[in-house]
């Protein structure tokens, strides 16, 4: 709403307003062999930290459970028990991450829980080499600093200072990186992304009745004014209320928007509030059909400022 209004307020002749960025999420573009680039959301640092934490908890709990089971079963003596415990600690380190990412296609149980996933940045499938690399470096990048923080240093100033610097480096690299890659990711050329969740929303254009479309008719001049961006804002607005919650408020909002649009395009008739949604929807359909037609002919209009971006067209 706010964005819509801000766009509205700009006077013709002023410099085109820069639209606020859609989201602040970092995006990653993969080029699969099919040649159609895919855009994925890069996983946030907090989510990755959470996944790592969950994995820590899982491995620790599993380790303790096995050790307790061994203790209760009383199968092994003291010395062998120690050996088994260390072996377990080894197995639930790097090998756990490597094997789970291999078998679960780039996910550890923690990542799965938080909806994260490792992908290869070059667009081919995730290779074993990449998985091994990113988890081997985890040993020095994650486990070592954590052990250092939990254990509280070894007493020697030289070593502690070095570990602190290393800790800073380890934290700074993913923050600075374009795709939140940690050092292991950089070496392996991988990135962690949010699991894409396909959700097909109904087509707004579909829901418009034929009668409504015949009732509200728009001329070409009226459809020339807006671009794809405004169209999609309108789409979001029309979709936003479909849950039917807070019907009154929505109705009022729609009326306000309808008024603005009618003022801008110079539409004479004012439909009753009950018909406002039908009006907006048929405007949406007409506008979309118009813009898609234009786009097909090579005249893609990103937003309503499209005219100012190029030299003034000849008056028709």
């Amino acid at each position: 709403m706010a964005r819509w209004r801000r766009g509205e307020r700009s006077k013709p002749g002023t410099k085109p307003l820069r639209r606020p960025a859609e989201t602040s999420v970092k995006r990653l573009t993969l080029s699969p062999p099919e040649g159609v680039p895919l855009h994925l959301d890069v996983a946030g640092l907090a989510a990755r930290f959470g996944a790592q934490f969950v994995d820590f908890v899982i491995t620790t709990v599993a380790m303790i459970a096995i050790i307790l089971a061994l203790l209760f079963a009383n199968l092994v003596g003291g010395a062998a028990f120690m050996a088994l415990a260390t072996l377990l600690a080894l197995i639930f380190g790097t090998p756990y991450y490597v094997v789970s990412e291999l078998l679960m296609n780039g996910r550890t149980p923690g990542k799965k829980m938080l909806g994260l996933r490792v992908v290869s940045k070059d667009g081919s499938g995730l290779s074993t080499h990449q998985i091994v690399v990113r988890n081997l470096t985890k040993e020095v990048e994650v486990f070592l600093p954590v052990a250092f923080l939990l254990g509280g240093g070894e007493g020697s100033l030289w070593f502690d200072g070095f570990m602190l610097v290393w800790l800073l480096v380890v934290v700074a690299v993913p923050i600075r990186s374009k795709a939140n890659q940690r050092i292991g990711d950089l070496i392996a050329d991988t990135a962690v992304v949010n699991e894409p969740r396909p959700l097909l929303l109904p087509d707004v254009a579909e829901a418009v009745g034929r009668t409504a479309r015949e009732r509200f008719v728009f001329s070409t001049a009226q459809l020339e004014l807006y671009g794809a961006y405004e169209l999609q804002v309108l789409e979001r607005l029309l979709r936003g209320g479909e849950e039917g919650r807070d019907g009154r408020e929505r109705q009022k909002g729609l009326v306000r928007i309808g008024e603005r649009i009618r003022a801008k395009i110079g539409y004479e008739e004012t439909p009753p509030p009950a018909e406002e949604e039908a009006f907006l929807k048929s405007f949406y359909v007409a506008q979309r059909a118009f813009l898609e037609q234009k786009k097909l002919m090579g005249d893609a209009r990103a937003d309503k400022f499209h005219r100012e971006a190029e030299p003034e067209p000849e008056p028709r």
Partner: peptide
């Protein structure tokens, strides 16, 4: 050709998801 954001977004994540399955490590 489409200005319907819903379709483009849906296809984008559907393709990404399918891509991850099709190009999964298979050894």
């Amino acid at each position: 050709i489409s200005l319907d954001l819903a379709v483009v977004r849906y296809l984008e994540s559907l393709c990404a998801r399918a891509y991850l399955v099709v190009y999964a490590p298979r050894e």
